[in-house]
Design a protein around this nucleic acid. Sequence first.
DNA 1: CAAGTCAAGGAGCGAC
DNA 2: GTCGCTCCTTGACTTG
Length: 285
Amino acid sequence: MHSLLCSHPAVSGKETPMDMRDRDDVRVAGLSLRLNYDVRGDLSVGDRPRPSAGFKLERSSSTATSVEPFLTLGLPGDGCGSAKAQAEEDKACSASRVVGRPSSPHSMASSFSGGYLSRIKREKGARVSDEEEDGAEARKKLRLTREQSALLEDRFREHSTLDPKQKQALAGLLNLRPRQVEVWFQNRRARTKLKKTEVEYERLRKCCETLRDENRRLQKELQELKSLKLLRPRYMQLPAAAVAGFTMCPSCSTMAAASDSEESGSVVVAPNPRFCNPFAHSASL
DNA sequence: CAAGTCAAGGAGCGAC
DNA sequence: GTCGCTCCTTGACTTG
């Protein structure tokens, strides 16, 4: 059975051009493969369909079983985390955690899970690792249990890095592979940093906005004062403190300077507390 | 190890 | 209710 079925929602006109998902249903050599492509964002940058949201493999011939999406979980007591070499341990444990299907290390689920799309892509690029050539190991999607996540979070709060001993112990405690614990910590560090950066960016953005507003107000004020001087030059020669509407900033003493600069023709006004630079007084804050 | 990326799977939402 | 879709989270991988 070799037929190719492609259904592009974009073709049927149901999708918007900038945010659409393509899905291919492909039947090849007795296998039916559903490919989803998430096409998002600015197509001018990258212009690549982003594989997403899973795939479904079904054997249409009578000689094989179907391959569907499945869930892998870190189940306690599945015998993982033993003293085997890491590579061997990884293979055996990954296979045994598959839920909802026979837990054979050489099952179809193992070969077709997770990394299938990336393998297709990589094969196009002619870079296939030994492991991939084996076809026995691929990326698995694990969802940690609430308890596992909570414990990992606790440990992360204590220490954002792990030494090999801690990693091993934690893996044993959680019934995960050390590699999984390691990856979890790496991801957690990266995402914590990202979150921090976002918060900091937002803070600086608001700060910048405030300063820009302040600057606009000061510019406007300056314009007003300049026009005021042009209209009433003698008025401006009065002591600044005597000018209605202007008061002396308690933490600045520019009054004397004001009369000095009068002679050079520039206008200096005692800073109104309203316009006090927050940075100039930050020490008192 | 950090940074970048891929991709599974679940939540949410509108249409039918 | 469920189907189709988008968006988001997160485990895993790759690269430097």
